[in-house]
């Protein structure tokens, strides 16, 4: 149990100054996510082009440092990826945050993986895992548009 591992500089930085905050211009996919336990809210906007590539991605929301940093880092990594690649990265991240030691995907560079691994500190705080995963589930929901609002409580 180490607070410094949870609240690393990079998390605090992204939490305070989230990247890709706002509504992406000309978005054509979006979804809202909500964590009823803590009141965190996130709205993910995507612009997928005709080749199913993420041309733009952004989010709006309010929440704790972990959930804001997670959404901020996520949007940075996803921009420019194809839909299939997005799904692989999301699945890899969700597995890592729940049980696996490391990220396995070859779709991210080492420095990108390092950045993402900064979120792995939440593993020691089971109640806070949902904070880190909310935007990722919401991204999946935006792509699939299977469900309008992700309710992280039941995940």
């Amino acid at each position: 149990m180490d607070l410094k591992e949870l609240y690393q500089e990079i998390i605090l930085d992204h939490g305070k100054n989230p990247r890709n905050l706002g509504r992406a211009e000309n978005f054509n996919k979006d979804a809202k996510g909500h964590n009823p336990l803590c009141g965190d809210k996130v709205h993910v906007y995507l612009k997928l082009n005709e080749n199913k590539k993420v041309e733009d991605i952004s989010f709006e929301g309010q929440g704790c440092a972990i959930s804001m940093a997670s959404a901020s880092i996520m949007t940075g990594l996803i921009k420019g990826k194809e839909e299939k690649e997005v799904k692989e990265i999301v699945a890899d991240f969700l597995e890592m945050i729940k049980e696996k030691e490391n990220l396995n995907t070859k779709l991210l560079g080492e420095d990108e993986k390092t950045k993402l691994m900064c979120l792995s500190g939440v593993k020691q705080y089971p109640m806070r895992v949902k904070c880190a995963t909310l935007s990722w589930h919401t991204l999946t929901s935006a792509i699939d548009k299977s469900q309008n609002e992700i309710n992280n409580e039941v995940k």
């Binding site: 149990m1 607070l3 949870l6 609240y7 336990l37 803590c38 009141g39 965190d40 929440g63 704790c64 440092a65 972990i66 705080y125 806070r128 904070c131």
Partner: peptide
């Protein structure tokens, strides 16, 4: 955010609640 407050306080053994 209150949840960050609660996690940091918990480290010191201080149990509060955060949320709605």
């Amino acid at each position: 955010h209150p949840h960050d407050i609660a996690t940091i306080l918990d480290e010191d053994g201080v149990a509060i609640r955060a949320g709605h």
